[in-house]
Design a protein around this nucleic acid. Sequence first.
DNA 1: GCTAATAATGTAAGCGCTTTCACAAATGTT
DNA 2: AACATTTGTGAAAGCGCTTACATTATTAGC
Lengths: 333, 333
Amino acid sequence: MATIYQVSERAGVSLATVSRVMNGSAKVGEATRTKVLKAMQELNYRPNSIAQSLASNCSNSVGMLVSEVHGPFFGEMMSGVENELRSVGKHVIIAAGHSDVASEKDAIEFLISRKCDALILHVDAVTDEYLLELHKQTPVVVLNRLVKGMEENCICLNNELGGYLATKAMLELGHKQIAYISGPLFKLDVRDRLAGHQRALQEAGLVFDPGLFMEGDFHEAGGVAAMEKLLARGRSFSAVVCANDEMACGAMNCARDNRLEIPKDLSIMGFDNVIMSRYTFPHLSTIDFPAGEMGRMAARWVRKHIYQDDKLKVQNLFEPSLVLRDSALPVSA
Amino acid sequence: MATIYQVSERAGVSLATVSRVMNGSAKVGEATRTKVLKAMQELNYRPNSIAQSLASNCSNSVGMLVSEVHGPFFGEMMSGVENELRSVGKHVIIAAGHSDVASEKDAIEFLISRKCDALILHVDAVTDEYLLELHKQTPVVVLNRLVKGMEENCICLNNELGGYLATKAMLELGHKQIAYISGPLFKLDVRDRLAGHQRALQEAGLVFDPGLFMEGDFHEAGGVAAMEKLLARGRSFSAVVCANDEMACGAMNCARDNRLEIPKDLSIMGFDNVIMSRYTFPHLSTIDFPAGEMGRMAARWVRKHIYQDDKLKVQNLFEPSLVLRDSALPVSA
DNA sequence: GCTAATAATGTAAGCGCTTTCACAAATGTT
DNA sequence: AACATTTGTGAAAGCGCTTACATTATTAGC
């Protein structure tokens, strides 16, 4: 592989000049530029990005940490990030945190030692304090989590609004007895979604009934289990809104196993609008989570603040929206 | 951030010695080693991996190119690769090829300029010749595609066997009239799956009937369209095997829209065992595609051949397996 | 026509490591 | 006791770039 030195030799100029035509960092005469370009071409020269990084103290790479590489949104988010970044010649290094404190910290250390210019984090185990501290050391953007003191670095979804919209949709279909299966309550977004649910109820003059509430685990099995318990309580309800699509699937399957027809006997609402929701039977009504857009925005944040792409605008808060499909119907009778 | 120089100063030894204790590349006296380790600790030293890469001519990174970052197997494959590689301190840089020749080549160029120690490719647009050529220039492992002349570098699934197993399962349930919805025939794996289907038919003494065959596009809509046409032909069949799960979903939905009950009136088989197949109604019977394992194996290939982890064994051919769920039933009457 | 800017290019000092080579000290061999 | 090994360490030359800073060529100003 040719080096910058060989190019300079062939073009009959100095190293510095070659570097200058590569980076456009200073004026170069038209004739020289052409000579250099020609030499590059002939040698099929490709700059060694490692050397560039070392010399410029900029690795042109950003680290992305997600809970699970094969998790439901990851693909979408990742895709947004990759697209946005590669279009400007930066690359993304990925790592998984497995929702475990030690593992997340470990991955972050790894990314830092890799000299990433910035970190895009989708984490849920480490504390806010840790993130705040990290933020002082290295540029960080946090996805789907609002950390007090670094709001500018967070790209979030308005989860409260999502929860609100989900329940509101059911209310508008005439449902009055609405069960709610939440995610693990230690997560902030889970509590926000629940708060939205409660607000919708309240606005409709309904009171939140703990008897129609279950804490789930965001997995299908958790949805099944929650539904099972809900049914076992013998309370009547015509709709159930779930804090994510997986649990909604579980709930649907469980309901069906209990001879309830969906949506005739029971309406179901999910959350996230993961790919799968388009394939279930019946197709799941859900709340769209613009994961791809948010990933793209995180990347844009990095472009703007780290790579000085000043005119870029970044949007910190995203709005969820309702996706009505077949799993929810007006209350019958 | 501390440099190796500061560590050496503090420990009262030379740069070289510090480097040696870091890499274990040569013997260092016990006392010195302790001194150095202590100095590192005190300075919270973290080697600059960029500098290491430049000096050692090894970037400790491997590039991974996939069709779509948010594609169906990508998450699984990626996850396998990331796991295997990060456990040994290497990182993975990702890029998407979008099944387009120019885009794939572009991404490969990008990865190469990034000095990846090896490339893991999941591509379908570039030609075998191109891959062969690339293989001469830089270490490459190809996923899910057998390239003649570099078989050792390919990690494949026995697609023919998969196709065979899918149809065989239907035959064993007593089905005699089995429709087949394939993927785009320009893809090798698609043709292999079809060949397996035909072999199963043949072994059962049945002849392949073009009237029960449709070429699809691997997407849900394609499954719907194919099913529609199949139905429109007015031919009778009691089972349909699809070349992937998405199309199987489409086919199921379409069949249902045409008042066919699944699996009572029609049995359906998918291929790939993507996450989604566990959530459909009824749960989809399918052929398991061990994407995660294959990704892991690709990473292991790299560890073995590039990072000299000699005792590692790599398996080039993977066997698919049947996953029977609810969408296939013995033929009724 | 002479000085002061300005533009274009070259020189060389790093960036933070690895690694070869040389050398001194410790150990083993007869 | 003389020599050959082995072991531990340091000096220094890169790796392929970027980027002050220095230098020369060009143009402008008067």
